[in-house]
Simulated scan of single mutants.
Amino acid sequence: MDWLLDPLNYEFMRQALMAGVLMGILCPIVGTYLLVQRMALLGDVVAHAVLPGLAIANFLNIPLIIGAFISGMFGTFVTGWIRSQSKIKVDVAMAITFSSFFSLGIVLFTSLGSRLDLEDLLFGDILSIAPADVWEIGLVMLAVLVGVKVFYKELLFFTFDPLGAEAIGLPVTAMNVGLMAAITLTIVASIKAVGFILVVALMVSPAAAAYLLTKELHWMMGVGAGLGVLSCLTGMYISYYVNTPSGPAISLTLFACFLLALLFSPSQGILTRRRGQSKA
């Protein structure tokens, strides 16, 4: 048991593990909606769209979360606007928004003389996370979970059949804005800990693994959250004992979980499917 308890002797490890648990629950639940709507790339778009907002907020000396949230929401609006005003498909619109906002963010960071470390924003530094950051992630997680619980049936209908939801009078525009706000808040709250790159992996990989293992949305959220927490904790312990960066260790653990689900899922696994075909 010493190997399990030894990291807990350090305050920075306790804070990092707590943040990992919270993000492991939050990110896959939000990512489930992106995956089911086949818009997983939108998480990457929002993650990079917040960069100009961070640079401007830092320059104006206002809370970073405000600038990042406004910029992230504007990025989703631009994606939707391009899609609605042209024949361009959503994946192309997301790629255009992704590259443009990321480039604008780099320009603003350089021209405004930002004090933020761009490398930390890209890759994160979960070992330096402060208690205030953990509380911020916890509050965002609580707000998202309450929203999902209260509007679960409406979101379920909207996710699988947006045209049908609109036909029966559901406020699909408000629901879409609320979902985009939840995605943006999740990314903004998690960026300092895990960076742009890993936050997308946390949103997509556990949800994708759960998609292969389950058939219902609520089970997909639960299994995804469980895999997210497991991957964060396992990655943190690996980084502690092998002396590797925490973010990449968590990301590789996430991929390992997805790979196991891809190979051994009872209904959709590559190996289990082949075994069933050979028996037939």
Rank of each mutant, 00 (worst) to 15 (best):
V188A: 13
A174V: 02
A189Y: 03
V188D: 09
L127T: 10
K192P: 08
D120T: 15
I168H: 03
E119Q: 05
V148W: 15
A182K: 14
D117V: 07
A208N: 00
D120R: 15
I126T: 12
A207E: 04
K149T: 13
V177F: 08
I187W: 12
E119P: 04
A201D: 00
M175V: 01
D120I: 14
V107G: 00
F109N: 09
V107H: 06
P131N: 07
T186P: 10
T173G: 08
L155V: 08
E136A: 07
V134Y: 02
A181F: 11
V150P: 13
E166G: 13
A165G: 15
A201Q: 06
I106Y: 12
G169R: 09
A130H: 09
L139Y: 14
G178R: 11
G113K: 12
A174R: 13
V144R: 03
V134R: 05
D117W: 04
I197Q: 01
I197W: 06
L139T: 13
I187D: 03
I137T: 12
W135Y: 10
L142M: 11
L118R: 03
R115S: 08
T159Q: 10
A210S: 09
G178L: 04
I129D: 03
A193L: 01
A208V: 03
G195N: 06
V107P: 02
L202W: 05
K149L: 12
D125N: 15
L179A: 02
F109H: 03
L127V: 15
A201F: 10
S114T: 08
V188Q: 03
A167P: 12
F151Q: 15
I106C: 07
E119R: 12
A193M: 11
V150N: 00
I106A: 06
A143P: 02
A130M: 13
G147H: 13
A210K: 01
K149P: 01
L202M: 15
V204M: 04
I187Q: 12
S114V: 13
V172M: 08
I137V: 15
L122Y: 06
G195K: 00
A207Y: 09
E154N: 13
V194H: 00
V144T: 01
V148Q: 03
A167C: 07
T184M: 00
M203F: 05
L108N: 04
E136D: 08
K192H: 02
V107Q: 01
F123H: 01
V194S: 00
F157A: 08
S128M: 14
F151P: 02
I197T: 08
K153G: 05
A174F: 13
A209H: 00
I168T: 11
T110G: 09
I137L: 04
A132M: 03
A208M: 03
